[in-house]
Write a protein that binds this DNA or RNA. Structure first.
Lengths: 329, 329
DNA sequence: TTGTATGCGTTATCAG
DNA sequence: CTGATAACGCATACAA
């Protein structure tokens, strides 16, 4: 490995001069700077990140933590983050799994964006207490080193339920996410509230789900078992809605006819299933970009980083049709 | 920040004893070890990665480089890698963008897996020359520090073309990937060869594509413009095939009737489009796992890491039907 | 404008 | 079994 010491030797200067030259410090003549750069180039010099970090106590690397790499929501989100980070001179790496949490505590990261239920609130607070800067995308957490950038779950769930109700559905279901997860709780609360506030005589039931296809599949079975007329179903995410499509395919019941479904997330597949899935949409890219901006602000310490909310909108689709239309004619 | 020096002070021992204790070196009594660990815990000690790395010249972190985070093929691939790496005591981070290449050269990574056309062969060779260990998933590259783990593109493309031919199609198209990309070139070569070897009187044409939806959409336009009977199309990846579906939706032509399509990759959507897309399948998970294994072998220097091939298989679907059946009856 | 000296937190070698 | 001490490569305050 070639270090600045080697460069110094070859260029006939001291190592501090090399360091200055390499970092563009005006203390060194343009001339010697050029000479030193030439030598560095010739020797194939590459700075050593560990040494620099040890000294400067910063890596200019941000980590985003995901529960899993699987399930394809996050492309736009990460891309949005990356663009902002790169522009601001930071690099982004994506991590997953408890084992990788060490990167945060051991100081390999200048900050982190958390979208990962495997982090407990306690653990996050510990990290924040140690001075690490965090943005959370999946919970509410109050700490001077933490800012929240959250989806407007409440609005989304309200849109979804109001849509079903507006189409005349009186028998409603919600298929939930894993108990205790922030998104699930928030969406559920809003769904209930919407039903109550409607003032209509609505049957409303919740079926426990898990945010995965399988649980949507399972929920469909229950709905069919109880079937006694058109049902409106709010799947708290699209993946479960897709599971429901899969399940109904094997039965005489039809989506948008017997079972009316709204999802949440607007994943790619939603546009391709038959009939097209009604869902709640938001800009992943924007979400990522906002999160990145806030984190960098927090790290820089200048400008107050503030909690942010990401807006959502409803996308209609033929997976929901009026309850009182008799399709069979 | 609390360092081993602080622990030493509090525990009334020297820093080297602390280091030994923390690293489980048997040189230190079980008793003092416990005492030191207790102190460390109490002081909330966390080791400093930069210092350790500077000394040991290893991070136990592997980087996987992707061209983009968008487009959701890679979930299974990354998950497969992660599982193996974690089992072997390594952490995995995902990187994207030229800016992040510095992580490799600056020594923040013990090795890297490359699936990213933004790395030129030259750049990779430079890294390899500096002693960095690499696994390439997207090209052929000979170097003692590089091993290849490649899809069996040739087999896949042959399956796809043979399938179209076996269904009696005589007018064939291939929609290509970006010029110069390994996957595209390999699949194309095999496609041509299959046509030639068939010994049949087949019209075969190539339409330049870009591995994205848009180019599939565009290719469809050309095929329709020339339409004079059933056409068989091998889209060199599924994404372009989906673009073709989108394009035909706006025309009177039907997939599996006028235009018969085979893709490559078996992405999620392939199972949900109507009619179901015939495609070439492989285990992403296995691909990732094999890549990870080979890289760790290469890093460890023990056992010879060897180039590997990932097998593929054909999944049929109604996007391809016999050419001579008159569906309109 | 350039050089000298020191320390960042670890590991590891060598004496005790 | 434990303690000094020298690196690792770099940045920087201070001296020249």
């Amino acid at each position: 490995m070639v270090s600045i010491k080697d460069i110094a030797k070859h260029a006939g200067v001291s190592i501090s001069t090399v360091s200055y030259a390499l970092n563009g410090n005006p203390k060194v003549t343009e001339e010697t700077r050029k000479r030193i750069l030439a030598v560095a180039n010739e020797l194939n010099y590459v700075p050593n990140a560990a040494a620099r970090t040890l000294k400067k106590r910063e890596t200019r690397i941000i980590g985003t933590f995901l529960t899993t790499f699987e399930g394809s929501f996050y492309g736009g989100l990460l891309q949005g983050m990356k663009e902002i980070m790169n522009k601001l001179g930071y690099d982004l790496v994506i991590c997953s799994g408890t084992q990788s949490h060490r990167m945060l505590s051991e100081g390999m990261l200048d900050g982190a964006i958390i979208l990962d239920r495997e982090f407990s609130d306690d653990e996050l607070i510990q990290h924040a207490n140690r001075g690490h800067k965090l943005v959370v995308l999946d919970r509410e957490l109050s700490h001077e080193n933490v800012v929240q950038v959250l989806l407007d779950n409440k609005a989304g769930a309200t849109f979804a339920m109001e849509y079903l109700i507006s189409q005349g559905h009186k028998k409603l279901y919600a298929v939930t996410g894993p108990e205790g997860t922030f998104d699930s709780e928030q969406r559920l609360a809003a769904a209930r509230q919407t039903v109550e506030r409607s003032g209509l005589n609505i049957t409303y039931k919740e079926i426990p789900g898990n945010f995965d296809k399988k649980s949507g599949f399972a929920a469909a079975a229950q709905i069919i078992a109880e079937y006694d007329g058109p049902a409106g179903v709010f799947c708290l995410n699209d993946e479960m809605a897709i599971g429901m499509y899969d399940a109904l395919k094997e039965t005489p019941y039809r989506i948008g006819e017997h079972v009316h479904v709204v999802g949440f997330d607007h994943i790619d597949i939603a546009d391709y299933v038959q009939p097209r899935l009604a869902t709640v949409d938001y800009s992943e890219r924007r979400w990522g970009a906002v999160a990145a901006e806030q984190l960098i602000k927090l790290i820089g310490g200048k400008g107050t980083a503030e909690h942010e909310r990401i807006y959502v909108s409803l996308i209609t689709g033929d997976s929901v049709r009026p309850a009182n239309v008799n399709i069979d004619g």
